[in-house]
């Protein structure tokens, strides 16, 4: 029982980590606080559901479509909506406020469209739903696959960003958008890419989550909240921190829901958040900022 809970928590945490990684790219590099992040995720989950039920397409194939589609759509959102705000903002604080407000509006638009198309019921589908025996515990195959794919994607991105030249330009913009142009980096282009990658990860996370979780059109907000908390717990802009914090959050949430009460999933997350805020405001893995 204990081991099963731990495994399920780890799997859930894997997808949290992936979605939070996306948010971290958007906030840490593109400086956009995207409150509609979870809506992108739910939209991808519905895509997977429709393609699976309608065309018999397995979610892993949908994933190959969702990643580039998420990238393209987020690229468009950045170009149309965020870019004018970035140009207008005199300082970072103003951009933060403007982007929060604009994406707050986007949240309601996307949620409204999904409510209109799919209704407010909870949805799920059954794919790879047979148990696999792992170290004496049974875990559904779909959870295992989702976990492996999300960790591969997350760690792959981490390696790209920490080990390649392209990753170095991203980190340069994250560190200091004012000095990056001095070494020939096009900040605008990099920010756009980072925002689009963030959206791509949200879409990927949505497809993976849809394989083993019931979801609804109004459920994006809760995913956004958890992703935001993971980003802050991991330390703003710290990708490895976000991965570890995501996994930890998944485990803690699963323990609370299975041993205490399923209704307290968000409460457990928030209590953890408060403890982190009071104890290490810079995040578990962040470095102190002035």
């Amino acid at each position: 029982m204990l081991l099963t809970t731990l495994m399920i928590g780890l799997v859930l945490g894997g997808t949290y980590a992936l979605v939070a990684l996306g948010l971290s790219m958007q906030y840490g590099i593109a400086r956009i606080m995207n409150l509609a992040h979870g809506e992108f995720m739910i939209a991808a989950a519905f895509c997977a559901y429709v393609l699976f039920n309608g065309a018999g397409l397995p979610p892993l194939v949908t994933l190959l479509i969702a990643l580039p589609l998420g990238y393209g759509l987020s690229w468009l959102v950045y170009s149309v909506m965020m870019h004018p705000l970035v140009k207008r903002a005199p300082n970072r604080g103003q951009l933060e406020a403007d982007s929060i407000l604009a994406t707050f509006g986007l949240l309601f638009i996307l949620q409204g469209i999904m409510l209109l198309v799919f209704g407010s019921d909870f949805t799920s589908y059954s794919y790879l739903n047979h148990p696999i025996n792992l170290w004496g515990t049974n875990i559904a195959a779909n959870r295992l696959v989702a976990f492996i794919v999300s960790l591969t994607l997350g760690l792959g991105l981490y390696v790209l960003i920490t080990r390649t030249r392209w990753g170095a330009t991203l980190r340069a913009v994250a560190l200091s958008p004012a000095s990056a142009p001095l070494v020939g980096i096009q900040v605008d282009k990099v920010a756009r890419q980072a925002f689009a990658i963030g959206g791509s990860l949200a879409a990927g996370g949505g497809v993976l989550v849809s394989m083993f979780v019931t979801f609804s059109a109004a459920g994006g907000v809760v995913f956004t909240m958890k992703a935001l908390i993971v980003v802050i717990m991991g330390g703003t802009g710290n990708l490895m921190g976000a991965i570890i914090a995501g996994l930890a959050l998944g485990i803690i949430e699963t323990f609370v829901t299975s041993y205490i009460d399923p209704g307290l999933s968000l409460a457990s997350v928030y209590i953890l958040f408060i403890i982190v805020l009071l104890w290490r405001p810079q995040g578990l893995f962040g470095t102190a900022r002035s």
Binding site: L85, L101, G105, F108
Partner: peptide, 19 residues
Amino acid sequence: DHFSILLGALFILIVFLLP
């Protein structure tokens, strides 16, 4: 049925046009 879509669009308009 379109309440929240229209509301969201209006919200974005206000942020852009009347900061």
